[in-house]
Amino acid sequence: MARAHPKSTTLLDARALARALQRMALEIIDLADGTDTLVLVGIQRRGVELAERVGRIIEEKEAVKVPRGAIDITLYRDDLELVGPKPVIGETRLPGDLAGKHVVIVDDVLYTGRTVRAALDELADFGRPRRISLCVLVDRGGRELPIQADVVGQTVKVEPGGRVDVLIEELDGRDEVIVVERP
């Protein structure tokens, strides 16, 4: 959509993003009171890559294996009825039974909370974790549901109509978080 140049600013550059992930990893270890039952579950797509990165950091710091999973929440969306062409569905894979685990959902941006609501419903169909927490790289405000994150990389207020674009090396060729204000 080629509208007149919307204003876009860098929220996190590559180094700031790396630091944010380091801090998020430490907070997850604190939150989970160790890593014995920890499972990281990324939301497709960028949440999956972020969960992988955070997972590697935790593994280095703690010298343990942290199981990772991915979920695609498309089939649990509350607006599936309303979207035009049906969205492409990504892969869902969870590392075994979640019963008794502390699942940390990882996503790139927390906005309305509807994605997280869908993820909670979907996880419930895979078992009964002891606890579920939420970890996001950016919280941009604008919630439409009573949901909040336990671990946040960066908080920023972005008006409706604006966007937060999370670019990551594995998918986009570089690490950067950009805020695009409504033109």
């Binding site: 969306r77 607006d79 009825e81 906005y111």
Partner: peptide, 13 residues
């Protein structure tokens, strides 16, 4: 029903 899509704007991010 794409005609309803507008009503759902700002739905799931």
């Amino acid at each position: 029903r794409p005609e309803l899509a507008d009503a759902a704007k700002g739905g799931v991010e």
